[in-house]
Design a protein around this nucleic acid. Structure first.
Lengths: 342, 342
DNA sequence: GGAGGGGTGACAACCGGTTGCTGGAAGTTG
DNA sequence: CAACTTCCAGCAACCGGTTGTCACCCCTCC
């Protein structure tokens, strides 16, 4: 039980002035007793602390924020909280922020660049920094935000802005190699939103890898980055010749698997499916999804820690984005190409 | 492009004093031009607005919060963001808050009552209200928080505090009836955390329904409210006689299904499994999960709107919790009891 | 022409902290 | 014992808004 349990809703919360009166010192001494340990006599400080706990004083963060210009809050913008990858990223970021004494303001931008931009501008005066997870904004819009506050972008590479990205090129390459080794020569990439940087990066890496490995690589989409979007894509896929499919994200990949099954195709017997992101649903679906895995919570935490470093005056690293490794988790949704009965 | 695109990081943001100078009026007139439409001459107001946009003025929310004692922020505490039901609740709450011009501070309390209490106390001075989703705190701790700020609790019934709950009794009853009608006479309830109010409510309703319908109803657990927890529970279940199982939540239910399959049992052939919460993973798992469904995003939004009503001075409703309907979605994980070969 | 009154803008206090500066008390040194 | 430091608490200004109060202007009406 704390001394302040009695704090009533109506009664004004005690201020440093109340503490000052109770301790027989001035308000500035109270302020310093908390903020500048060495600046006041230790006995005086002790007396102030005792008085503070006695009357249940807690510093008003709003007043602190006003005079120090530090709100101790970070905005985290996600495009869709219903997508487990954003929930994981957010969780990693939130825990890291909390550990540093920062609060996290979440905003769901509903996959819309305009909403995202407006949200960012609206929230900007209130936060010390902004973490953009999978931003749908233009590079110019991101830079405009970054001019006003420290910004870290997650899942996107962008010059002059601090970035945390997975090694999309290598991860994608591994996925294509995996399909190629299984004998698939005709591959398809199921695209997510055009505004997604990762979508572009994955498609380019896919395309490059197909070319190098002498495979045919087509692209279909864009589709919504959801289960429904993947399901829809499967309809298009069912009529095509590709026996190996790489899908923009896990939610869609699961949709693709289900859609293909619905169309009477066997996965991986008729079509091998590989996705991105290691989330529970990919392990649950039958067959379990072969996927390119990245450490989501760790990425969220890293991005947030980098953001706090910027906020606290670190110079942005000029050596390009922080790249975290991606690895392929082979599971059941991919396998050797079948001898096809024409 | 906005006028404030030029706002630099180093340069101080313009204040009402800058606007006042530019418009040739006093600062208080600027303030009133924005906050009290009728209070200043419309021409003056127009001039002020023009000057404000010209120099890229935006009100400092911290300063506003300090003088009005309204931060326009709400804290939302969730016990585990990795659980999709909290992501959905949070999303509903965040969208509703945003629509009302409020920001949402999220905190993941990691299923721990102490963390939750400390988090609540820490964040309390900063927010106008607190939304507790599936709180693990004691009733007394919740009331202590509610004494300091308006509180709405979601997924928990509690006298003297505003609540939003699903109709657990009816939903659970329907699930038990469903199993009973399929011929299952020996049922088990797989329990979640003891500190969860919904867990208690579901167990009691399960127990009552079994009694009334003359079925045997045992309880196993508690287990972690995760896939892993459900998987673990399945091991205990595999050795038991129950042919119908009701599981605390969807994540666990999916774990139970997988665990039972792992143990060589068929679902629903050998054991029927029914869960709670309608989330994507329950539709994806094979067999698809029969579940008690509640409108998660809508509950989050309702809870947040009720909280804002309290914040804005509404009297707490004395007529008990807001109860939203729950309904059973029969899918593939439940079916008629099999003639068992002993 | 002077009194009464509504509209409107400015002054200044306030919200609750932080911090530069100042001066008095205590301690050190020659 | 005087001069010089060092330590430390208090004063007052400041962060950027909001708002109670008041004075002034102008219009109206007698």
């Amino acid at each position: 039980m704390q001394a302040d349990d009695g704090a009533q809703r109506g009664t004004r919360a005690p201020t440093i002035y109340d503490v000052a009166r109770a301790a027989g010192v001035s308000a500035s001494t109270v302020s310093r007793a908390f903020a500048r340990p060495g600046r006041v006599n230790s006995e005086t400080a002790e007396r102030v602390r005792a008085a503070a706990t006695a009357i249940g004083y807690r510093a008003n963060p709003v007043a602190q924020a006003l005079s120090t210009a530090r709100t101790r809050m970070i905005a985290v913008l996600v495009s869709d909280l219903s997508n487990p990858i954003y929930a994981e990223l957010l969780r990693g970021a939130q825990v890291a922020a909390s550990a540093a004494g920062y609060g996290v303001l979440v905003e769901d931008t509903r996959e819309d660049a305009v909403t995202e931009r407006e949200t960012a501008e609206r929230i900007l005066p209130l936060v010390e920094g902004v973490l953009l997870t999978s931003s749908r904004m233009s590079d110019a819009a991101i830079r405009a935000v970054a001019k006003q506050r420290p910004v870290v972008v997650l899942n996107r590479g962008l010059a002059d802005v601090s970035c945390v990205v997975a090694d999309e090129a290598r991860g994608t390459r591994r996925a294509v190699e995996h399909l190629g080794e299984a004998g698939h020569r005709d591959l398809a990439y199921v695209a997510g939103p055009d505004a997604s940087w990762t979508n572009g990066a994955r498609w380019r890496a896919f395309s490059d890898a197909c070319h190098e490995l002498d495979l045919t690589g087509r692209r279909i989409g864009p589709f919504e980055p959801t289960f429904a979007g993947g399901f829809e894509a499967a309809l298009a896929l069912a009529g095509a010749r590709s026996s190996g499919v790489l899908v923009f994200n896990a939610l869609m990949a699961v949709g693709v698997i289900r859609g293909l099954q619905q169309a009477g195709l066997d996965v991986p017997g008729d079509v091998s499916v590989v996705g991105f992101d290691d989330v529970l649903i990919g392990q649950i679906v039958s067959p379990a999804l072969t996927t390119v895995s990245t450490p989501l919570q760790a990425m969220g935490a890293t991005a947030l820690r980098n953001l706090l470093a910027l906020v606290n005056g670190a110079r942005p690293r000029s050596t390009g984005p922080v790249v975290v490794p991606a690895r392929l988790l082979p599971r059941e949704s991919s396998g050797p190409v079948a001898a096809r009965t024409p």
